[in-house]
Amino acid sequence: MFPYGDNLIHGFRSPVVWALLALMIAVTAADELSGLHRTLVAELGFTPALFSTRPWRHVHTLVTASLLHGDMFHLAGNCLFLWVFGRSLERLFGWWRFALVFPFLGVMGFVVHWLLSPASRVPVIGASGAVSALLGAYLVLFPYARMRTIIVYLPFWKRIAVPAWAFLGYWAGLQVASLALGMGEDDGTAYAVHVGALALGMMIAAIWKTSYPAAEEELEAFVDTSFAAAPPPARTSRLC
Rank of each mutant, 00 (worst) to 15 (best):
R91N: 12
A228G: 13
T149M: 09
G169C: 06
L134P: 06
A172Y: 14
E90Q: 10
A164W: 02
V195A: 10
H69K: 04
M72L: 15
V162Y: 02
T53S: 14
A119F: 13
F227W: 14
A177I: 08
F102I: 12
G106E: 10
S14E: 03
P231L: 15
A197S: 15
R235M: 07
Y4H: 12
E218W: 12
T210F: 13
M202G: 15
V63A: 12
L154Y: 13
L67H: 00
G169H: 04
F2G: 02
R121V: 12
R159L: 05
V17W: 01
F46N: 00
L181H: 07
L174A: 10
L8H: 09
W208N: 01
V140A: 08
P103Y: 11
C79W: 05
L154I: 08
G35L: 04
A130D: 00
V124C: 09
V27S: 04
S120Q: 02
F156P: 03
F142H: 03
A49E: 05
S88V: 11
A234C: 03
L50S: 09
S237G: 04
S88A: 15
E220M: 10
S52L: 15
V193P: 03
M72W: 15
G5D: 07
A192R: 09
F227P: 02
D187V: 06
W114E: 04
P55D: 13
L20I: 08
